[in-house]
Write a protein that binds this DNA or RNA. Structure first.
Lengths: 145, 145
DNA sequence: TCACAATATTAGAACTATTCTAATCTATTG
DNA sequence: CAATAGATTAGAATAGTTCTAATATTGTGA
């Protein structure tokens, strides 16, 4: 049993990753994939990523950034984290984990380790199935509020 | 020690509740408070509440619905639940509890009992304080997806 | 009760994040 | 290298929410 396309990460490079996801390796997708996956885990908004791309002289439209992010989600390379009304965060860490959300700065941070979990997970309402459990720990500066 | 203004709920009526929150009992606020608090726990969006009001022939603008919801949040009568990008839910249950979110229908539901909690709550990042812990269990119809 | 000041409400404009459209461009395949 | 399927784009459109500034209502103190 060797490494297969189903494995969620260890892609040595963006090109491989796009191939595995059956997405044409266009200039834009390659650049975005590199920005997202070649550094450690990241939490970005579409606007942030777009800004970053332009700052790096990658010519890409905001529409393409959105398209690409959604394609990456469908491919299981990315997941969306909902913490702020009217702003979507995209998380490159797709393993089971949860988040600290810094309410003042809007910064999102993985909770390290596998230490957080829900005690006594309740049964889902009948006829439904649990798709995901999100734990958001909202924090703000000690003295604030 | 009799009932005081600090107690979060048992208000027999909307008028009392507004008084305790130091909000003038205007026609609109009274109507909205009744719709929100005189039946059991509710989860509504601003648009839903607005529609309901109009259906009940309460003349109130959407702007006022938003203003009022935010004032109720500030007064601790309501809390916001963030589960859906670009849509805010307002929850009349302000006690410690968590939610099932039905991804297909957009329906939000309290998880009954005090059974859900986070095991081994991690320490917050230094310099910060935990303001709230949200657990969202996302469900969808058994067969769907 | 009345007049006044403080507070609320409103319609509609504005704003933000996101999605859509349909025209143009690019990658892949034979 | 031509044909075609798929990708990108600018800009328009949309959805939810907030803002603005004009008007209306409420509580108060005489």
């Amino acid at each position: 049993m060797t490494a297969t396309a189903a494995a969620p990460r260890p892609f040595s490079n963006a090109l491989e990753l796009l191939r595995a996801a059956k997405l044409r390796p266009t200039r834009q997708r390659l650049a975005l994939a590199r920005m997202l996956f070649e550094t450690g885990d990241r939490h970005v908004t579409a606007e942030q990523l777009h800004g970053e791309a332009r700052a790096a002289s990658v010519r890409v439209s905001l529409a393409t950034v959105y398209n690409t992010l959604h394609q990456f989600i469908s491919a299981g390379l990315l997941r969306e984290v909902v913490v702020d009304p009217g702003r979507s965060y995209f998380d490159t860490n797709v393993s089971d984990h949860h988040h600290f959300f810094h309410e003042d700065s809007g910064h999102l941070q993985d909770i390290p380790g596998e230490r957080v979990g829900v005690a006594e997970l309740p049964a889902p309402p009948s006829g439904t199935k649990i798709r995901r459990v999100d734990v958001i720990i909202r924090v703000s500066p000690e003295r604030a509020r």
